[in-house]
Design a protein around this nucleic acid. Structure first.
Length: 420
RNA sequence: GGGGGAAUGUCCCGAGCGGCAAAGGGGGCGGACUGUAAAUCCGCUGGCUUAGCCUUCGCAGGUUCGAGUCCUGCUUCCCCCA
């Protein structure tokens, strides 16, 4: 596991150069497979929400690079494992999702993959899989006899994730043991069905992946491999993908394209190079040039990062539109009608909407109380003028030439209110 | 089975002599300064129809003019002994 390993395959060369690799069970083994064009790999995604968020993007990019370098990517939907619920997030009673919720979530998640991967029947075409297919049909006794006997509790107890819990005297439920086993079993099952030999994932998945490799050896799959990506944090140490309004979702119905673009635009200086490598496909020498821009010039690099990352997910046209909206809003101070817009009926508007209510409707604040506080702190603006009177009411006089009212919270968040 | 602790503002951690919308952090949001960055400084961080009203301290009762605080029972978690 030397970090100075020199890959011969395009796949590992790209991953290494761009910073996707944290650990690998056997660099040379994966390298040979990739070099021979025989690499088939999977990454599992649990369906805990109706969209994946930025945290999963790194994983998706690995699958994308695999495909581009001649391998076959297999995204695995955790339709079965989600029913068990991965308790590794710790915490008390994690509410179990209903089957309906899981189904709905799977549909939401599935869309994203089609944007990053090419699906089909060809050699390097991606195939969508779902572990509900085999896990839900498992019979407990059969599973114990065929698979369970290969797990050593002694060994499981020595795993980091488990040891940590035990050391801290935190609850470790039996269900968690099972989760690890199911994930291991997935690996073996996917090997049988698709000839998969590599499982990738975040660094927190290392233990589970290694268990899968081990199970494979005992169940006669031939040599399996594991490769993990580093846990991403921003340069100032925050977990990636959280914003004020929650996670940075990949589905546009959960997070408008404009907001997605803004997320990347607001990257910290120190992260620009790293993010360009991981989340865009720009050539390396171009990235090196961009990340070395000094002072305010690095903003150009941030725009390119935002454009490229957004184009990959939402398409070039949407990315351009978001960039143009941002340019008008921030650089020219001109109103762009492409800002996120919420509509109210004309009769409701004419009846008079209070400013407090308007900001709540726009989703800029969570309650009228918060709106009041923000007004006191000078944080709310209407058509770029600070709101000072919380009793004010919107009227036709507030409509701009475009027939909208621009509501802003802070300097960066803008929503248009449009009577229809 | 016996004994001893713990549960607080629904993001987290955490103080709280019977007068409490409840100390202090972290995180988050806003303002200032900047470059839509970081760092720094300042403000805010239960809800509403806001001179007021309503709802919060594991759950259910009780004492009291008044309970996060005292009493009783219950639930969950932790520690010690067996």
């Amino acid at each position: 596991m030397s970090t100075d390993f020199q890959p011969k395959s395009d796949f590992l060369a790209v991953l290494k150069e761009r910073g996707y690799i944290h650990q690998c069970s056997d660099f040379a083994g994966v390298d040979d497979k990739a070099k021979a064009g025989e690499l088939i790999a999977y990454i599992g995604f649990d369906a805990t929400a109706s969209s994946l968020h930025i945290g999963s993007l790194l994983q998706i990019m690995m699958l994308r690079w695999l495909q581009k370098t001649g391998g076959k990517p297999i995204p695995l939907m955790g339709g079965g494992t989600t029913q068990v619920g991965d308790p590794s997030g710790r915490d008390e009673s994690r509410k179990l999702l209903t089957l309906d919720q899981i189904d709905a979530n799977k549909n939401g998640i599935r869309q994203v993959f089609t944007k990053f991967l090419t699906f089909g029947d060809g050699k390097t075409d991606a195939v969508m899989t779902d572990n509900a297919e085999w896990l839900t049909a498992l019979n407990y006794i059969h599973f114990l006899r065929d698979v369970g006997r290969h797990f050593s509790v002694n060994r499981m107890l020595s795993m980091d994730s488990v040891k940590m819990r035990l050391d801290r005297e935190q609850e470790l439920s039996f269900i968690e043991f099972n989760y690890m086993c199911l994930q291991s079993y997935d690996f073996v099952e996917l090997n049988k069905r698709y000839g998969i030999t590599l499982q990738m994932g975040g660094s927190d998945q290392w233990g589970n992946i290694v268990m899968g490799i081990d199970l494979g050896r005992r169940m006669g799959t031939g040599q399996l491999y594991g490769l993990t990506s580093p846990l991403l944090t921003t340069a100032s140490g925050a977990k990636m993908g959280k914003t004020a309004s929650g996670a940075v979702w990949l589905n546009s119905d959960m997070l408008p394209v404009y907001d997605y673009w803004q997320y990347w635009r607001n990257t910290e200086d120190a992260d620009v190079g790293r993010f360009l490598r991981l989340f865009t496909e720009l050539p390396m020498d171009e990235i090196r040039r961009l990340e070395n821009l000094g002072g305010a010039e690095i903003n150009e690099a941030k725009k390119i990062l935002a454009n490229e990352a957004t184009a990959m997910l939402h398409g070039r046209a949407s990315a351009d539109e978001a960039a143009e909206t941002a340019r008008k809003t921030f650089e020219e101070g001109v109103l762009s009608t492409a800002l996120p817009t919420i509509e109210v009926t004309r009769s409701e508007f004419e009846a008079g909407i209070g400013v407090l209510t308007a900001f709540v409707k726009a989703g800029l604040v969570a309650s009228t109380g918060e709106a009041r506080r923000q007004i006191k702190g000078g944080g709310l603006r209407m058509n770029d003028a600070a709101v000072s009177d919380e009793r004010a009411t919107l009227s036709a006089a507030d409509l701009t030439g475009e027939g909208v009212v621009k509501l802003s919270m802070g300097k960066k968040k803008h929503v248009l209110l449009k009577p229809v």
